[in-house]
Amino acid sequence: MPKTLGDKRHDALVAYIKTYRLAAGLNQTEVAQLLGEYQSHIARIESGQRRIDVIELIKLGEVLGFDPAEAVRQLSELKT
Results as ranks from 00 to 15, higher is better:
M1G: 04
G6T: 03
G6N: 04
D7S: 06
D7W: 02
K8E: 09
R9S: 12
D11A: 12
A12V: 03
A12E: 05
L13E: 10
A15Q: 05
A15E: 10
A15Y: 01
Y16P: 00
Y16C: 01
I17T: 05
I17C: 13
K18C: 10
K18L: 08
T19R: 09
Y20M: 10
Y20P: 02
A24L: 01
G25K: 13
G25V: 10
G25Q: 11
L26T: 00
L26V: 02
L26H: 01
N27D: 15
N27Y: 08
T29K: 12
T29C: 01
T29S: 07
V31P: 13
A32W: 06
Q33C: 02
Q33E: 15
E37N: 07
E37A: 12
Y38E: 12
Y38G: 05
S40T: 14
S40F: 05
H41L: 03
I42D: 05
A43R: 09
A43V: 09
R44I: 08
I45D: 12
I45C: 07
I45Q: 11
E46H: 12
E46R: 08
E46D: 14
G48T: 08
R50W: 09
R51K: 15
I52Q: 04
D53A: 02
D53E: 03
D53V: 09
V54L: 15
V54E: 12
E56Y: 08
E56C: 12
E56L: 14
L57S: 11
I58P: 02
I58S: 12
I58N: 10
I58W: 10
L60D: 10
G61C: 13
E62S: 15
L64E: 15
G65Y: 11
F66M: 05
A69D: 03
A69E: 00
A71S: 04
R73P: 00
R73Q: 06
R73C: 05
R73V: 03
Q74V: 12
L75V: 00
L75G: 00
K79V: 06
